[in-house]
């Protein structure tokens, strides 16, 4: 099952942070036990009893104060050095050119691979075992890119590209989310990171580069016609057709993806039909309007999209 936990790191970067978390967790735990122990001791030992006189009016001790100022100083220095080291290990300097450019949109993620030219949405493929340099951008407001098991989180800021590394030790699928509030559908701005063997990754890239097949006839062909007649093309791109807009997700290989609506539902034929019937029903506030398609139209469109493997 996919999870988002930070306690199960799957990459050297995430592991560095995890180790720091363990070490500092132990330090915090010890401090808590000592100080809380002192308080509990006082609560048990020095209760007031009926008729007791006021105790010795001790007003302080300079030595004690100096000691318990210096000890935290040392702890802080140690934590600072550990943090410094971990920052270097979990977030090495970025190279001049990124491997993936990821853009946050309200409320989905666009991923471009500048070296190969692949463009996809909400599903980022990486070769396992290879660190990939990611450049983070924003098309509108602030978002935050977070794949807890693989790497640190980092904001996407308009006009201020940020850089992180992402990698996975083993092949696997990891869940990512947007963690900076970005408007109505901030909750459903999930994405998947799919780590594959280098061969699988190369095959995937190759498949993604292929233009979409044009269906010759039947329901799917009618779906394509509908797609081109309506204003779908104003927002979406399908490589191989006239649609080239970059406002909504690129749909060229839509059917190969596992999630729909940035994670709000799984990408199944049934969900796709529900989505086309009224996206606002599934993801209220999403930028895609309700086109009030007839049942037949929905079915034609869905048939077409299912060809976009």
């Amino acid at each position: 099952m996919k999870s988002l936990t930070v306690l199960d790191p799957q990459s050297p970067e995430a592991r560095a942070i995890y180790h720091l978390a363990i070490v500092s967790g132990i330090i915090f735990g010890l401090i808590f036990i000592i100080v809380a122990g002192m308080i509990v001791f006082a609560l048990m030992r020095y209760r007031w009893r009926e008729g007791a006189a006021d105790p010795n009016q001790l007003a302080g001790s300079k030595t004690v104060e100096i000691v318990w100022t210096l000890i935290p100083c040392l702890i802080v220095v140690a934590l600072f050095l550990l943090t410094w080291q971990t920052m270097g290990a979990s977030d090495p300097p970025a190279p001049a050119t990124p491997d993936i450019v990821i853009t946050g949109h309200q409320w989905w993620w666009e991923a471009r691979y500048p070296k190969s030219g692949v463009v996809t949405a909400n599903e980022i493929h990486i070769p396992a075992g290879t660190p990939m340099a990611v450049q983070l951008e924003s098309a509108d407001v602030l978002h935050e890119f977070w794949v807890a098991q693989l790497t640190r989180k980092m904001a996407t800021v308009p006009d201020h590209p940020n850089h992180i590394w992402i990698q996975s030790d083993q092949p696997g699928t990891y869940l990512g989310v947007c963690s900076e509030f970005c408007g109505t559908q901030h909750a459903w701005m999930h994405f998947l990171v799919v780590a594959e063997t280098p061969e699988q990754f190369a095959a995937w890239e190759k498949a993604q580069l292929a233009p979409a097949k044009i269906p010759a006839s039947g329901s799917a062909a009618q779906g394509l016609a509908l797609f081109q007649e309506h204003s779908c093309m104003n927002c979406h791109a399908i490589n191989g057709t006239a649609a080239a807009a970059r406002i909504g997700p690129d749909l060229t290989h839509f059917a190969s993806r596992k999630i729909l609506g940035a994670g709000v539902v799984e990408n199944t034929p049934a969900n796709l039909r529900r989505w086309l019937t009224d996206p606002q029903q599934i993801k209220p506030g999403v930028k895609m309007p309700d086109y009030k398609f007839s049942e037949a139209q929905v079915s034609q469109l869905a048939d077409y999209f299912e060809t976009l493997q």
Partner: peptide, 18 residues
């Protein structure tokens, strides 16, 4: 104590906004 873990940038990179 949890505040110190937010002061440590590396930990904050995971725990922030959660």
């Amino acid at each position: 104590l949890t505040g110190v873990s937010h002061a440590s940038a590396a930990l904050d990179w995971q725990t922030k906004n959660s």
